Computed example of a mutant assay.
Amino acid sequence: MSGPPDAQSNRDFARTRVLVTGAAGFLGSHLCDALIAQGHDVVGLDNYYTGRKGNLTHLLAHPQFEIVRHDVRQPYWGEFDLIYDLACPASPPFYQRNAIATAKISFLGALNALGLAKRTGARIFFASTSEVYGDPLEHPQTEGYRGSVNPIGPRACYDEGKRIAEALFFDYHRQHDIDIKVARIFNTYGPRMNPYDGRVVSNFIVQALKGDDITIYGEGGQTRSFCFVDDLIRGFLLVMAAPRDFTGPVNLGNPDEFTIRELAEQVIDATGSRSKLVFRPLPVDDPRQRCPDISLARERFGWEPGVKLKEGLARTAAFFEQELSLANAS
Score class of each variant (00 low, 15 high):
S2H: 14
R15M: 12
V18T: 06
F26M: 02
L27Y: 02
L27M: 15
G28F: 01
L35W: 06
V42W: 01
N47W: 02
Y48I: 04
T57Q: 13
P63S: 12
D71Q: 08
Q74N: 14
E79I: 07
L82W: 13
I83H: 05
A87N: 06
A99M: 09
I105C: 11
I105F: 04
L108Q: 13
G109T: 01
A110M: 07
L114G: 11
K118M: 12
S128D: 10
T129A: 12
V132W: 07
Y133V: 05
G134M: 04
G134W: 02
D135L: 07
E138Q: 15
G144C: 06
R146C: 14
P154N: 08
Y158E: 05
G161A: 07
E166P: 05
A167P: 00
I178G: 11
D179A: 10
N187E: 13
P195E: 10
Y196I: 03
D197C: 12
F204V: 06
A241L: 07
R244K: 14
F258P: 00
R261K: 15
A264I: 05
D269R: 15
S273M: 09
R274E: 15
V278R: 13
P281W: 11
R288K: 12
Q289I: 05
R290L: 14
R290W: 14
R290S: 13
P292H: 08
L296K: 14
E304K: 15
P305H: 06
G312A: 09
E321T: 02
A327K: 07
N328R: 15
